[in-house]
């Protein structure tokens, strides 16, 4: 039964414009991240050349080339911004559209008139959307790998592995927001309230919590190179305990370590940053399960 339902759900997702929009947006942002990375690396080299000439004219020694210490995967560092900003919103919309139609159109009532458990129904929905998300991540990974290959003139097996790990982490992060989109549909009565509630949670996670826990201003969080607030402030010493709730920060920290674009960290520290994302996914999954059991499908939701 679960295979049939998952198959059906995958076909629905494929027919929906939401998935096409999701896939298209990821192709676009991955390409854009690579082009921006290429442009940045070219600029660094050209600025360095000009700086060397300028300093030579004034009799000063040439400084070390900053590009020498730039990691090979740094050209994709913008992806660590686009995933929590653009990808997470798209993931919310994907999760929302996966369950809203059954609820709003009354199909849910029809489905549950058949001998079908709610657990199986939810599992098929979640499995289908997880597979769709995986397809998007694989496409994004392939584009990234080709971009690194072309721009850097080669890619090491280690970098291929790092890219696989990074996109696996991104899949988990986006999956959290897919589940958030599902949860808000199950706890609210109206289509728009569900979407706006999820958007409110996204705003809090992406902009407000990083400010509270690390003093990162909203616009500063758009830059892959953000300097955290001074740790001496007693306020941040207190709020740093909330850091596991700041999922976007944890995702960025783990991504920077995986792609080697940030400060080097031990495997244990990287896992500490990854754990909140995984815990959030499990917790929201459990919440979905609890909510779907209690959800009253006999009452059709408003179409708006």
């Amino acid at each position: 039964m679960i295979v049939t339902l998952t198959h059906h759900q995958l076909r629905s997702i494929r027919r929906q414009r939401t998935f096409v929009m999701f896939l298209g947006s990821f192709v676009l942002i991955t390409t854009m991240a690579a082009l921006l990375g290429y442009s940045s690396s070219r600029t660094i080299v050209r600025v360095y050349d000009e700086a060397t000439k300028l300093l030579a004219e004034t009799g000063q020694p040439a400084p070390p080339n900053p590009f020498d210490v730039t990691p090979s995967l740094a050209l994709l560092s913008n992806m660590t911004i686009y995933v929590p900003f653009i990808g997470a919103i798209l993931a919310v919309v994907l999760g929302h559209s996966t369950v809203i139609d059954d609820k709003a159109s009354g199909i849910g009532r029809l489905i549950f008139s058949r001998p079908l458990s709610r657990r199986t129904y939810l599992a098929s929905k979640v499995l289908a959307v997880a597979l769709a998300l995986a397809v998007v991540m694989v496409v994004s990974w392939a584009i990234s790998t080709v971009a690194v290959l072309l721009i850097n003139g080669g890619i090491s097996p280690g970098d291929v592995g790092r890219l696989v790990t990074y996109f696996a982490l991104s899949w988990a992060y986006l999956f959290v927001f897919v589940l958030l989109g599902i949860v808000t549909v199950l706890v609210t009565r109206q289509r728009a309230t569900a979407l706006l509630t999820a958007l409110g949670v996204w705003v809090a996670i992406t902009f407000v919590l990083p400010q509270v826990t690390s003093g990162i201003r909203p616009v500063a969080s758009l830059n892959p190179l953000t300097a955290p607030a001074p740790a001496v402030q007693s306020f941040f010493q207190m709020t740093s305990h909330l850091r596991p709730l700041s999922l976007s920060e944890e995702y960025k920290s783990a991504s920077a370590t995986i792609l080697r674009t940030g400060a080097a960290e031990s495997l244990g520290q990287t896992l500490t940053h990854t754990a909140p994302v995984l815990v959030a996914a499990v917790a929201l999954g459990a919440l979905c399960l609890g909510l779907i059991h209690r959800h009253d499908y006999s009452r059709s939701g408003s179409d708006e």
């Binding site: 442009s39 300028l54 300093l55 400084p63 900053p66 730039t70 900003f85």
Partner: peptide, 27 residues
């Protein structure tokens, strides 16, 4: 609100290196 300002900010030569590219080059 997010993408266009982010692209503009990212393309800023000085934003390419932590602490600023020109500062890193001693300029």
């Amino acid at each position: 609100v997010l993408v266009l300002p982010q692209i503009g900010d990212t393309l800023d030569a000085d934003n390419q290196v932590p602490g600023g590219l020109f500062a890193a080059l001693g300029l």
